[in-house]
Computed example of a mutant assay.
Amino acid sequence: MSMRREAFLAHVQDRGEYGTPEEADRVARVVLALLGAHLVGAVRAELAARLPETHALILLNPMQASEPLPPERFVRATAAWIEGATEKTALWDIGAVLSTVAAAAGDVLTREVLVQLPPGYLLFGRPQHV
């Protein structure tokens, strides 16, 4: 059962403390495009099936990554794609989106997603103030 777009964005907006759903959407698109490049096969398809259609399509048609990004490079790449972002704000943005993705996916699928990522992805928890 996929999450409705409004519910998904409300969740991201709430977790990331964004002013508008549009801001939450902009951040979600960047993070999902980067995440999608790291996932393959049934896991990516199953995760996409739990997301709203517009966001599922981003996950399924990602930017091509030449190699899986370790967490710190994932953060740096996110910061590069979000206007005005720093690594610290990007980390927050990633937490807001991926904790929402994890909630939509459930524990079992989230574990399967983590298996496909380089080690050290602690980004599926709530965003942390540092």
Score class of each variant (00 low, 15 high):
Phe74Cys: 08
Arg50Thr: 15
Ala85Lys: 00
Thr78Val: 07
Glu23Ala: 14
Pro71Glu: 13
Met1Asn: 08
Glu83Asp: 13
Thr86Tyr: 13
Ala80Met: 10
Val130Pro: 15
Val43Trp: 12
Tyr121Pro: 05
Ala104Met: 07
Leu47Lys: 04
Glu53Pro: 06
Pro127Ser: 05
Leu109Tyr: 12
Val113Ile: 13
Pro127Met: 04
Thr78Ile: 04
His55Phe: 15
Pro62Leu: 03
Ala42Lys: 09
Phe124Pro: 00
Pro70Glu: 07
Arg50Met: 08
Ala48Tyr: 08
Glu67Ser: 09
Leu35Gln: 03
Ala33His: 03
Ala48Glu: 07
Leu109Phe: 12
Val30Tyr: 02
Leu34Val: 02
Thr54Met: 02
Gln128Asn: 10
Ala7Asn: 12
Glu17Pro: 00
Val12Trp: 02
Leu109Cys: 11
Gly84Ala: 12
Val31Gln: 09
Glu6Ala: 15
Glu67Asp: 07
Tyr18Ser: 00
Leu98Pro: 07
Gly16Ile: 00
Ala90Gln: 06
Glu23His: 10
Arg50Leu: 05
Ala45Ser: 14
Pro21Met: 04
Glu53Asn: 10
Phe8Asn: 10
Ala77Trp: 04
Leu117Gly: 07
Arg15Trp: 02
Gln116His: 01
Leu9Arg: 03
Pro21Glu: 08
Ala102Lys: 14
Arg29Leu: 07
Ile58Asn: 02
Arg5Tyr: 09
Ala80Pro: 05
Thr110Glu: 10
Arg15Pro: 03
Ala103Ile: 04
Pro62Cys: 06
Val101Asn: 05
Met1Gln: 10
Ala77Thr: 01
Gly125Met: 07
Tyr121Met: 02
Pro71Tyr: 12
Glu17Tyr: 02
Val108Phe: 12
Arg111Leu: 15
Val101Met: 07
Gly84Asp: 14
Ala24Pro: 03
Ile58Tyr: 00
Lys88His: 06
Thr86Phe: 10
Gln13Asn: 10
Ala102Gln: 12
Met63Ala: 14
Val12His: 01
Glu112Met: 09
Val12Pro: 03
Arg4Lys: 13
Tyr121Ala: 01
Gly125Ala: 11
Thr100Trp: 00
Arg50His: 12
Pro127Tyr: 05
Pro119Val: 11
Val43Cys: 13
Asp14Ala: 15
Tyr121Phe: 15
Ala65Trp: 07
Ala90Arg: 05
Ala65Val: 02
Met1Cys: 09
Arg5Thr: 11
Thr100Cys: 03
Glu72Lys: 05
Ala80Cys: 06
Arg5Trp: 01
Ala65Gln: 10
Leu47Met: 01
Met63Phe: 11
Gly120Asn: 06
Thr100Pro: 03
Ala42Tyr: 04
Phe124His: 01
Leu32Gly: 13
Leu98Gln: 09
Val27Met: 12
Leu57Glu: 13
Ala104Thr: 08
Ala33Asn: 14
Ala77Phe: 08
Glu87Ile: 04
Arg126Pro: 12
Gln116Ser: 00
Val75Met: 03
Tyr121Asn: 01
Gly95Val: 04
Val43Ala: 13
Val108Asp: 15
Glu53Val: 12
Thr54Lys: 11
Gly19His: 02
Gly41Pro: 06
Ala7Pro: 03
Ala37Trp: 00
Ala102Cys: 13
